[in-house]
Nucleic acid binder design. Structure first.
Length: 894
RNA sequence: GCGGACGUGGCGAAAUCGGUAGACGCAACAGACUUAAAAUCUGUCAUCCUUUGGAUAUGCGGGUUCAAGUCCCGCCGUCCGCACCA
């Protein structure tokens, strides 16, 4: 009697064996094998695992398992990025403590993750919201503080004037607070900063060494750091001894200057405003709206003429007006710019609005007229015009020339500027790492003594009113000054959660109780051999982690600079939308903002050939675009029911095979059905070898107790009908000789699948497994076929670990497949002795030739010209030229 | 507004170096088996035409080349990030 693959038994069975035998426990640092640290970005415990997690962790798992099979000592850990805003929101809405909510989520999600059968060393699990993690983070913060990498300064936050609370950018919707609906303002607070700009040059140069990072991520980081060379110069204020410092990357356009614009926070604007109520009002206007770059840069350009003027450095008799402008940022350069409207779009918009002169100083053609027309600035390269001695120079020549002149004459100097700003880490929130600082009225700002770490969050906090619960806690913040013993108070801000994710990969490698990590163990495992996560982390998380690592190196805690040797950014998991337009009761007609939709989840829908209908009322719904799965649009598919219906391996196979890993993956019901069928096809081959004449059957997709689950409704129906028998495989015992074609196919698959996994081309590896299975199924019984079937479980082991273990055992092998080496291939079998040559006439394919590999050029030419199809296409013409690429093609040019 | 990517049959894709476009899969269709359904197996499957052949096809428009999905220029569309979402 043939056995059948039952994932509902096999999954749990093998998972518990792996756990019992500690198969995936990382070996000690002294293990002689080459180390391979495989890491996926750890999840935020939002409540449920989503398909994006499933995809991310499946990919990492395939690599970890493949590395183990190819002789590596593997570290593959998992943890929880467990501080953050959603826990506080849950506390407000559901009246639960953020800690309880978070820990419950972790338990639920851990259970879900385990069902995927991941090769994870759970003994190293960590959670950033526990004092045994964040306490060590506080110690590292103090190390940075001591090294001068931490400082305090004023910085703007989004302020909700009704709730009297700080808002995250995410909580500002269309310029209004998400709960109060009040127009958001910008407010200054004293906040803590980490000196990431100290590392700007290092972080930029370090990118060159990151060979295994995607170019796009390196480019984004490069642009984010934004190194630019330019001129810092001073414009003297007419009638005073003061001046305005300006940084420009376009000193070549200095003769096109038309105005000076300073930021609303510029000290000059502030001092002028003291006696100018209208300017005060204007500055207050500039502070309306949130702090995001997108909001500031798309806001309409506004200026306030100060009536001050400055002298042009190259012609003191030429005076330029000084404006306060909302598009100038105090954080970049010196908070002041000179406007050259002809060659900068923002300056042009501003100049047209305030009717300021627009002078052309760069020309790319015949148009050299000094009057610049139109509303599109010219920012391309060209030659300098209307600029006295610079006329005729290129932009680059002119830049160098002006900088040299400014330095010689003493009114400016060349300067390197970075766009990167220091990292503001203060958050006015409860659910984060308390910043280990004490404020004393007499002694000032003091670090918490290390003996007092960890500074633990108080449990008794309330979330019934907006604001920071730490700040209004009755006792927590009151402490004695460690210096003078007088009453003092704790810092009540907590650290940005990006700090937690900036060193967790180090803690995974080494987890002593008394310090953040052990340097020797860290040295053995890091840098991470392969890091995998979403492209949305391309800049912030990855830059902060790179900074934190370099900062640890600077303070002497570790001896490497880059945390992630190789990076891979995977695409999102998407699903189509199902919705109906909501009928609004208002009389409003075409106002788009008022059109809203009712969304339906895939579980509520039956997909038909014409479209989709809602199960509840059997009426049509609109099938929308395919977009990222999100709760608000209800196009989410929960992994758990999929494990129930198809088992972990079918879900994993779908995640790996359906799209290239860097691209978006569209979840589809028929797709997962297909992978489920394929898992069974593999099983049938193995099973056929064992019991050739026994009847075979499928286990129907169903639940562990044998009841089938309706794919659409999710309801359990009656037990499935007994499996019927159909395909009776030929007896494998009737083996005989070898099957050379199948041998080739197998060895190509061994080499190709390994190479594809190594290169993270999982979809191609999947296609190659399909190809091999097709070939095996078509082959007649032979020793080769038996060998191919016995090898097949090893080839799918990284991707379908449960099926692989089950097959390995069924084939009578000893031990676990998880501990087996990757099969070796015979290179001789990879070489073709025949090749197919394309024959083109004028670049169009007319015939193909099958010839021995390495057939010389002239023979190929003769053969090609002799072809009847080629003759016909040539139509008696005489070839002008014949291009022959050996083993590839012949192209006859007429 | 700024920065970064992506776009190939009905659908997901492949084509590693400029050299036979569509491997592999999904869906669909036809057939076999079956009382029936499911499963399984076999076959068809880019579009069009005057069909043992031919033409057109890799978002659109140009260009380079004997040869372009691949290189160059210009558009269009979609997505991601923008420093307090994680």
């Amino acid at each position: 009697m043939a056995s059948r693959f039952n994932p509902f038994k096999a999954d749990g069975h093998w998972q518990s064996i792996w756990e019992k035998q500690e198969v995936f426990k990382a070996p000690p640092a002294t293990d002689p094998r080459p180390k391979s640290y495989i890491l996926e970005m750890f999840p935020y415990p939002s409540g449920r695992i989503h398909m994006g997690h499933v995809r991310n962790y499946t990919m990492g798992d395939v690599i970890a398992r493949y590395k183990a099979m190819t002789g590596h000592a593997v570290l593959h850990p998992m943890g929880w990025d467990s501080f953050g805003m959603p826990a506080e929101n849950a506390a407000m809405e559901k009246k639960v403590h953020p800690g309880n909510w978070t820990r419950q989520n972790i338990e639920a999600m851990k259970k879900q993750l385990k069902r995927l059968g991941l090769a994870i060393d759970w003994s190293r699990e960590l959670s950033t919201c526990e004092p045994d993690y964040y306490g060590h983070e506080q110690a590292l913060f103090l190390d940075f503080y001591k090294a001068g990498l931490v400082y305090r300064k004023e910085s703007e936050v989004n302020w909700d004037p009704v709730d009297m609370t700080v808002l995250a950018n995410e909580q500002v919707i269309d310029g209004r607070g998400w709960r109060s609906g009040a127009l958001v303002e910008r407010k200054k607070l004293n906040q803590w900063f980490l000196k990431i700009t100290d590392f700007a040059e290092e972080l930029l140069e370090g990118l060159d060494g990151l060979e295994h990072w995607p170019e796009k991520v390196k480019l984004m980081q490069e642009n984010w750091i934004g190194k630019s060379k330019g001129l810092k110069l001073t414009f003297n204020l007419v009638g005073t001894h003061d001046g305005i410092d300006v940084f420009t990357t376009r000193p070549d356009t200095l003769f096109g200057a038309s105005f000076i614009a300073i930021a609303a926070d510029h000290p000059l604007a502030q001092s002028l405003a003291e006696n100018a109520p209208r300017l005060q009002d204007f500055i207050a206007d500039c502070k309306k709206g949130g702090t995001t770059a997108a909001e500031i840069e798309t806001a309409e350009k506004m200026g306030f003429n100060t009536n001050l003027t400055v002298e042009h450095p190259l012609d003191p008799s030429w005076h330029l007006p000084v404006y306060v402008a909302n598009f100038v940022l105090m954080d970049y350069g010196s908070g002041a710019v000179f406007g050259c409207p002809a060659h900068d779009q923002r300056d042009l918009d501003f100049a047209r609005k305030y009717d300021l002169p627009v002078t052309r100083v760069v020309a790319d053609g015949d148009e050299t007229d000094s009057d610049f027309d139109g509303d599109v600035a010219f920012t391309g390269p060209g030659q300098i015009v209307n600029s006295h001695w610079m006329n005729g120079m290129t932009v680059d020549e002119a830049k160098a020339d002006v900088i040299a002149k400014s330095e010689a004459e003493g009114w400016g100097e060349g300067q390197t500027q970075y766009r990167l700003r220091d990292w503001g880490v203060s958050r006015q929130r409860y659910w984060g790492t308390p910043i280990p600082i004490i404020h004393c009225e007499f002694c000032g700002v003091l670090p918490v003594p290390r003996s007092q770490l960890p500074i633990v969050l108080p449990e008794d906090v309330s979330f019934d009113v907006p604001g920071n619960p730490l700040d209004r806690h009755p006792t927590w913040k009151y402490v004695k000054c460690p210096n003078c013993q007088e009453p003092a108070r704790r810092e009540t801000d907590t650290l940005d959660t990006f700090a937690d994710s900036s060193w967790y990969f180090i803690r995974f490698a080494s987890q002593p109780a008394d310090k953040p990590f052990d340097a020797d163990e860290v040295k053995a495992w890091l840098p991470v051999a392969q890091y995998i996560g979403g492209i949305e982390h391309a800049i912030l998380h990855l830059l902060y982690a790179r900074f934190w690592t370099r900062a640890l190196q600077r303070v002497g805690k570790i001896d490497f600079a880059e945390p992630f040797g190789a990076l891979f950014t995977q695409g999102m998991v998407t699903h189509e939308l199902y919705y109906r337009e909501k009928h609004l009761t208002t009389e409003s007609t075409v106002d788009e903002a008022l059109v809203s939709y009712d969304y339906f989840s895939p579980e509520e829908i039956v997909r038909t050939s014409e479209g989709a209908t809602l199960v509840a009322d059997n009426q049509q719904v609109v099938v929308g675009r395919t977009v990222k799965m999100s709760k608000s649009k209800k196009n989410v598919v929960d992994p758990d029911p999929m494990f129930d219906q198809y088992g972990a391996d079918a879900v994993r196979w779908f995640m790996l095979g359906d799209s290239p890993p860097e691209r978006d993956l569209e979840w589809s019901e028929s797709g997962i059905e297909g992978t489920w069928r394929f898992v069974n096809r593999i099983w049938r081959l193995v099973d056929g070898l064992n019991s050739p004449r026994a009847s075979l059957g499928e286990v129907a997709a169903g639940t562990a107790d044998g009841g089938a689950v309706d794919a659409v409704s999710g309801l359990t129906t009656a037990a499935p009908p007994p499996p019927a028998s159909q395909a009776v495989p030929l007896p494998e015992q009737a083996q005989g000789g070898l099957d050379k074609a199948l041998d080739k196919s197998l060895h190509r698959a061994i080499a190709g699948i390994g190479a594809d996994i190594y290169a993270l081309h999982f979809n191609k590896a999947v296609a190659k497994v399909h190809g091999l299975v097709n070939d095996i199924e078509k082959a007649k019984p032979s020793a080769s076929r038996t060998a191919a079937i016995r090898t097949l479980p090893l080839l799918v082991a990284p991707m379908l670990p449960h099926l692989a273990e089950e097959a390995w055992a069924a084939l009578g092998n000893e031990g676990l497949i998880a501990g087996q080496p990757w099969p070796s291939h015979d290179p001789a079998l990879l070489v073709d002795d025949e090749v197919t040559i394309a024959v083109q006439v004028m670049g169009k394919l007319r015939d193909t030739l099958t010839v021995a590999k390495g057939t010389p050029k002239d023979s190929l030419e003769t053969l090609a010209l002799a072809s009847e199809k080629v003759q016909r296409a040539m139509d008696n013409a005489v070839p002008k030229k014949v291009i022959v690429v050996p083993d590839r093609l012949v192209n006859i040019v007429l």
